[in-house]
Design a protein around this nucleic acid. Sequence first.
DNA 1: CTAATTTGTAAATCGGCATGACGAAATAGC
DNA 2: GCTATTTCGTCATGCCGATTTACAAATTAG
Lengths: 402, 402
Amino acid sequence: MTAPLHEARPAGPGGALPDTQQGMRRRNLARVLHAVRAEGPLSRAAVASRIGLTRAAVSTLVDELIRSGLLEELGPERPGRVGRPGSALAVSGRGPAGLGAEVGVDHLAVCAVDLRGTTRARAIRQGANRGRSPRPVLAELTELIRQVVTEAEAEGLYPAGLAVAVPGLVARDARTVVRAPNLGWHDTDLGPLLPSGTPLTVDNEANFGALAELWLGDGTPRDFLHVSAEIGIGAAVVVDGGLLRGTRGFAGELGHVPVRPDGPECACGGRGCLEQYAGEEAVLRAAGLEPDEDRVGLLAGRAAEGDEDVRRALRDAGTALGVALTGAVNLLDPETVVLGGELSGLAPWLLPSLRDELTRRTAGSACPVSVSRLGPEGPLLGAAHSVVRAVLDDPAAFARRA
Amino acid sequence: MTAPLHEARPAGPGGALPDTQQGMRRRNLARVLHAVRAEGPLSRAAVASRIGLTRAAVSTLVDELIRSGLLEELGPERPGRVGRPGSALAVSGRGPAGLGAEVGVDHLAVCAVDLRGTTRARAIRQGANRGRSPRPVLAELTELIRQVVTEAEAEGLYPAGLAVAVPGLVARDARTVVRAPNLGWHDTDLGPLLPSGTPLTVDNEANFGALAELWLGDGTPRDFLHVSAEIGIGAAVVVDGGLLRGTRGFAGELGHVPVRPDGPECACGGRGCLEQYAGEEAVLRAAGLEPDEDRVGLLAGRAAEGDEDVRRALRDAGTALGVALTGAVNLLDPETVVLGGELSGLAPWLLPSLRDELTRRTAGSACPVSVSRLGPEGPLLGAAHSVVRAVLDDPAAFARRA
DNA sequence: CTAATTTGTAAATCGGCATGACGAAATAGC
DNA sequence: GCTATTTCGTCATGCCGATTTACAAATTAG
């Protein structure tokens, strides 16, 4: 069960997994759990009609889920309609929990989320990690994780997995950081440096942010583009409720989409990449500011104060983003574009020019652009919830308390 | 079964379809059929070990497939190894057939492909369709279809579905042509104008071309970008063996990716779109040629003759394509980029500058670019095979001869 | 208070795959 | 050539899981 949590799609008919009765049972357990979680307290009969199985079948499935501690009987429903009232079922608040962790450039954070989706424990530590080597940073993170775990265990939860968000590119093995420029890490397997015992997943924070938006955003569709800017500018592509990762796991590198093919040279080898117009450094330079620790906060502050240089820099960045997103929208035809992560704080000054550029260039089929409600919380929540989803998707694999 | 044939991915655990024993049976039938089709003649035991079921289970599945006329017993295998030789099974050459049709700008084509993947009947009619209204064109096409169907029926095949490739954008209902500029069609439901009786799917020819590449191309991976140029420049995005269609079904509009944001105005409302540098008209103009009927053929001919103007125009188009593809590759991280359709004829003159531009701009992670072996045959074959795939994916739904 | 309706469960049934055993058909070893 | 061995395909049997049917329990409608 260390397999990459929450990959986009199950194997097709050509897949190699045999289709046996145990598999059917497992999938049906997942369906019951999903239904109860998604639509609040539900009776067995209600679940049965939702997922298309008979009441009898659902009964045995529910029994098994209750015995495993994943489902809970809340007692008889208040009867409003005719007929015997059902017994309300809810996802347990005391079963497995998803551990999410975030390695930020200037902070570490950990949280535990239960199956219901509520955050039950959390810990944050401020402090610049830029340039520190992985070992001490992850030792601190491990300490925070232990705190959160004991806190969660006091409430009857047990960790079902750990998902770590990092500001960098992660290999498809979901453990190795290929490069994280803002930390100075490269080709580091985080596995040995983090607590073992629970399955581990490491991923780009932009990806987790997008998943958070998918699972927790209000009304976010199953097909969208999630743009964030932590390391350079990353876009996560969500297709049919799953993340598009790419062959090497590098999908979503919006930062190096060419905006002006003859523009200034970029470290990537190209010219006029988006990053040179809308990247943090570029915007700071255009605004006439010196790089600082809390770069985004600085920009937002100055812009709010009315600093015309900063505002113009952000407007221009928005325009460049609009050009790059035009390409992406043409290619992917997403339902919406969502600005998330740190970017959401700058949205008020980026959005107008961005929308302008995008809608002008995609006259016929304008794609709405919105701002994530989750903001900088996204990656951490997405990480924790990715574990929760893994449990919901295959409860049999995570059950305890037989 | 009129549902869009061959959508990318099955519903996840949240899906609404109940998971019952019949469903399991159906999936296992598909697995057996897929295994036999993919790996040549196979004994029951070999199938069993391939797909992870027992010999006994496979036996009953095979019986059912033989009774349905989808599988055929070829007789005992030549024994090379110790032990009783198995009885070779092969996909039937006399079961259901996929009908593929193509509405081209200057031709109509129809073919029938059996489950084995071999084309068993075909019909082509040359003739310019530019500007003709849908009804007479589809009447002609229907005539061709009838020819192919009677020809196929003479060989013991029966049509399992009809897939039509058109040079234009198709709505997600897979029946309505939203706009096909080169034909002059817009918002036309093709359903009533085509033979009923078999399930119908209409799709963009670029999409079918990409599927053909996926299914018939040699060594093509499950994640790639397929670029063709029939109407403007279309790219089909194949992710994990499925087509990415987009919310409105318009994904892959590479033609309007901005290449030079301040370039000349485009009909789409933008500026400097790829189409203005690598579109047919633009290239013809840059080469100093007049638009002609067989535009691609003209270009290829002149380039082969050594016409320096044409070659330069194609080189420049390749460069522009490279810029646009840099964006796409950064965003999607595909395993390869494949040039298909009519474009493959121009590849010798496009490729060098295209590769140059693309590899320079994506220094670290160069993405290989190749040319489709199928060429202009792609869309028609892809259409027919999409029907065949639908049968392979759910044989129970298409079985006859109970 | 009775009829109707809905829920949850228990018993019987059915469908589908696994298991184990067996005959059939080949090779390997003597 | 004969026997042992291996592999294939097919039974009979059993298990697992969902369905069907029936029924008691709990509510509303009249």
